[in-house]
Structure formats: C-alpha cells, structure tokens
C-alpha cells in the first residue's frame, strides 16, 4: 500500500494547494492555466485547475473503488475482512495508477545505506526533491547520508482529456438499477 498511500498524500496535497509548483506543473495544470490566461485563447475555461486531481480520484474509484475504501469506517471489521477487500483494491489501484502516472523513486538506491545526493540525477539540484533529516549542517546542505526513503517522482502524467460534458467533481455517479 505504500505506493498508493504516497500517491494519495500527493493528491490530497494538490487538493489543499500545498504541493510545490514544479510538481504541480508536472501534473499539467499550471501549464494549462497559462494557456488559458493567454489572450489568444477565445473559449472560456471549461475546466478548473483542480480537475486533474479530481479526475484521478474518479479514475481510482472507477477502476479500484478506492474512494469507497478510504471513506469507509473500518471500526468493527476484522483485519481479515479488511485484508480480503484491500488486496483487490490495491491491485486495481496500482494498475490504473501506473497507466496514468509514471512514478519512479527520486533516488533508486537501497534504503538504510549511505547514499550521495548525486544519486538523484538531475533531481539532485531540486531543493524539493531531497529532504535532509537528522543532524543537518547549519547551511542546510550535505553531500550525502543514509537513505531513509527513496521518495517518489511523477515522471509523467497522462490523463485523458476531459470532454465538455464531463464533471470531474462527480467522483462516482450514484447508481440506480431499474429492475
């Protein structure tokens, strides 16, 4: 569940507006915003910046029922029962997340081992990509340290284009069966 959990923290971060601009940009809507504000674009903005986040929530609900799971009160259920359901949810969520978001570790190393900052490649220069913890020097920088968490980096996001009739705020439609 670690991957999905991480991804989720990221999405809720997006929802509450706490995500660094560069990652938000990699999700595609800062750019989109810029296009919209360009004077040459005549049609009024049909979709709002948060749409991408809502859209992926909708996708994870559609494919894996993830929102149903997150919103459910787990008190009163045996671990075994939760486990039975989660296995399927995680499998599906992972598949569909992989389909739309290409996630890779910031540092592809072994956790618990001394690792140089350069191991992050081009991201090494990105202040937001590496967080120093513990005995951090006064200048806030260090050549390396024990890798505690590999981090996650969305290398690309490829969400389907929303059509005019789609309302991403409807994460899952209510269903009424006619018998």
């Amino acid at each position: 569940m670690a991957r999905v959990g991480q991804a989720f923290r990221a999405f809720f971060g997006i929802l509450s507006g706490q995500l660094p601009a560069d990652i938000a940009q990699s999700f595609g809507w800062v750019r989109r915003d810029a296009v919209k504000s360009a004077p040459a674009a005549p049609p009024p903005p049909a979709h709002k910046p948060a749409d991408g986040a809502l859209q992926i929530l909708g996708i994870l609900q559609r494919d894996a029922r993830l929102v149903d799971f997150l919103m459910e009160d787990l008190n009163g259920f045996e671990d075994e029962q939760v486990g039975a359901a989660v296995r399927g949810v995680q499998e599906q969520a992972k598949t569909s997340l992989a389909r739309y978001v290409k996630l890779a570790p910031v540092i592809d190393g072994v956790e618990g081992v001394y690792t140089k900052v350069e191991a992050a490649g081009p991201l090494a220069k990105d202040g937001a990509a590496i967080k120093f913890v513990g005995n951090v020097p006064a200048n806030g920088k260090a050549p390396g340290g024990l890798l505690r968490h590999k981090g996650w980096h969305a290398q690309s996001v490829d969400l389907p284009k929303l059509s005019s009739g789609q309302n991403p705020a409807v994460v899952a439609a209510a269903e009424i069966e006619i018998e």
């Binding site: 029922r65 149903d68 799971f69 919103m71 459910e72 787990l74 259920f77 029962q81 939760v82 039975a84 359901a85 296995r87 399927g88 949810v89 899952a172």
Partner: peptide, 18 residues
Amino acid sequence: HPITLLGKGSGLIAGTIK
C-alpha cells in the same frame, strides 16, 4: 484460487464476499 467480490453499494468492506 481466492475469489473476492467487493460489497454492493458504497460500503466496500462491509459486504465483501470471499
């Protein structure tokens, strides 16, 4: 091989059939 059917409606765990 396990067969898991998630619960009906929005309650996922509640109605899961294994």
